[in-house]
């Protein structure tokens, strides 16, 4: 029998996005509204001055949320439904499974990305180069968030442990980094904590590309280097250290 990779990819998208939205539309509303809450707070508190940064921040956070959601979904499917065990004993490979699951999170986030993209077009007059930089940053952020989510889901032995990890990831990738505002708003020495998070570098590069933050050339190179380095390290971790078949 000839197996279709496309079918295997679409299985994850159907299972984790399309059917979930179809059977439980409230999940879609929740996903769309989630990043707007913080965006609105920043808008009101800053009297609109941080709107541009907050929109870009919301786009980056959408990518981070994809990773943390993926971790939650995979942990639930693995530990409560035993889905991973069923799939290990089947012809689907872990790479195809995780690629499909990552796609499913993107599909879930499409309405969000579309609305935030429209807001960005209306309120931020960015060049094509800036748009490309932001897209690349979003892609990298998505890649490391998803890889980290997958890695942690495969080592979580039950949902309680999964929740604990989810809280830690959320702290590292979403709370510490200055995504909705510039890093200069964080006083020293607390700023060093923000530098621990890869999302900080995503935010700094994106904010610099729309002219809100002014990084030196070396600062830009350093931020890209760290972001790429961390992304590849986490990708490597996700591919090599995730537990598909148990030892």
């Amino acid at each position: 029998m000839k197996r279709s990779r496309l079918s295997q990819l679409s299985a994850s998208v159907l299972a984790n996005a399309i059917y979930a939205m179809q059977n439980f539309p409230v999940m879609l509303i929740n996903t769309i509204l989630a990043p707007f809450g913080f965006l609105l707070i920043i808008f009101f508190v800053s009297h609109g001055t941080l709107l541009n940064v907050a929109i870009i921040g919301a786009l980056i956070m959408t990518m981070v949320t994809s990773g943390t959601s993926l971790q939650g979904d995979l942990t639930h499917l693995k530990n409560d439904m035993k889905l991973q065990d069923m799939l290990v004993s089947s012809p689907v490979s872990p790479i195809i499974y995780i690629a499909g699951m990552a796609l499913s999170e993107i599909v879930f986030s499409i309405p969000n990305i579309v609305v935030l993209g429209l807001l960005a077009v209306v309120f931020i007059h960015m060049s094509y180069v800036s748009a490309a930089i932001i897209a690349a940053v979003m892609l990298l952020t998505f890649a490391f968030s998803v890889s980290l989510g997958f890695f942690i889901s495969t080592i979580s032995r039950d949902i309680i442990e999964g929740w604990a990890f989810m809280g830690l990831i959320s702290m590292l990738l979403a709370t510490l980094p200055p995504v909705y505002y510039p890093i200069t708003y964080i006083p020293l020495p607390f700023r060093y904590l923000a530098y621990l998070s890869p999302t900080t570098y995503s935010a700094m590069i994106a904010q610099n590309s729309i002219g809100f933050l002014s990084l030196s050339s070396s600062g830009i190179y350093l931020s890209w280097t760290i972001l790429l380095g961390i992304s590849f390290f986490i990708l490597f971790l996700g591919i090599k250290r995730s537990r598909w078949r148990e030892g």
């Binding site: 295997q8 159907l14 979930a20 439980f24 069923m86 689907v92």
Partner: peptide, 16 residues
């Protein structure tokens, strides 16, 4: 969050 048929269907798609 999937119906009975959807559960079977996605398993078969995962198998290729």
């Amino acid at each position: 969050w999937m119906t009975a048929k959807q559960n079977i269907l996605v398993y078969l798609l995962w198998r290729g």
